[in-house]
Design a protein around this nucleic acid. Structure first.
Lengths: 193, 193
DNA sequence: CAGCGTACTGCACGATCGGTCAGGATCGGC
DNA sequence: GCCGATCCTGACCGATCGTGCAGTACGCTG
């Protein structure tokens, strides 16, 4: 798929630019020309590093998807409450670190169905939801989890649109842990610190 | 803005096609050609009824935005609990009726910032959140509301991607009332029936 | 110095985009 | 029968899209 994709050593600003554009205006709305200019390159250079626009999308989302796979793997046997809380904190940290990629997957994922990375990410999210169900109907739990997760993903990149971008990240993070705890685990989970 | 926009009498299938495309692939991803073909028309016909692609977007989202304005207006003085529950049910019904428009506003809104309808819808949502704050910090409440609302909006159009599309609408609707009640009002609100 | 791989670019291509325009078809009122 | 309005269309326009390709500048290794 990304046959001629070289090392990512020097292409970090390119990937950041791509991710920013994909998250803000979507895959179709983003043009290679603007992504390139934003990264200080020519359009041809972008296609030198990544064989196609789809390969660029794949490379941009890859770290987030791989990290998610690791996270999902960890979830087996979360029996006691402290481990659940620890996982939740790690999960919110993950959402924060890859907030742009998460925004692409959630907000524009439907338009990108069929692209390998997106389908992979979708499968992981479904797997995550399936492994988390603690009680009650699986369908209801899936719905609650979906609302909480997609809602959190949305708010992570929409804070400015809602004029609450002045709230410090730390506070948002704590509130997200709180909210996700209520939704997914069924009761509040407060941060240690 | 939509100077040459005629009556909407016969253009209902056109607006439905446009809304479907906008919600699924975004404004930029949707082409007038495909919207037209899907509605059984030519591209020229679309531009006859709506002077531009933006005018088409405006017309497609207009009913949802107008209904939201009415809903926000209703919210003043929701003091007692029964009236709050009644409002919540009406609100979930609203989300259901305009689920495609809601998906456009939430999932693709950022890419459409600057378009009149979208800015109008954003202002209404912010107004709605501001009028709803029952207790606690305004910022935290805004965040909780945002998570719940955007999450609900997302799940309304993503049910198939999560393979829970077999759940009957009535059940999803009841669960959404439940979830939004917990998030926005601070405690569960069960449906009468 | 020659040779080679790497990073990068400009140019050109076919396709598709949103949008304009002149005109055809169908109608009701005069 | 004619007129104007309404609905719809194909042909066309300039711009931009993703992509292919030939070529250039640089640095390393022999």
């Amino acid at each position: 798929m990304q046959d001629r994709t070289r090392d990512l050593g020097g292409s970090a600003p390119l990937l950041e630019s791509a991710l920013r554009h994909f998250a803000n205006v979507g895959f179709d709305g983003a043009s290679l020309q603007r992504i390139a200019t934003d990264a200080g390159l020519s359009k041809s250079s972008v296609l030198y590093h990544f064989s196609s626009k789809e390969a660029l999308l794949d490379a941009a989302l890859r770290p987030a998807v791989d990290d998610l796979a690791v996270l999902v793997e960890e979830i087996v046997a979360l029996s006691d409450d402290p481990s659940r809380r620890a996982f939740l904190v790690r999960f919110v940290d993950y959402l924060y670190e890859h907030r742009l990629a998460i925004a692409v997957i959630f907000n524009h994922g439907r338009a990108l169905a069929g692209h390998a990375v997106i389908d992979e990410a979708d499968a992981l999210v479904r797997d995550l939801a399936a492994r988390l169900k603690p009680a009650g109907s699986a369908d209801r739990q899936m719905l609650r989890f979906g609302v909480a997760l997609s809602g959190a993903a949305f708010m992570l990149v929409a804070a400015d649109r809602w004029s609450i971008d002045h709230v410090p990240d730390e506070e948002v993070r704590a509130e997200l842990v709180d909210v996700l705890g209520e939704f997914v685990l069924g009761h509040p989970v407060s941060l240690p610190a």
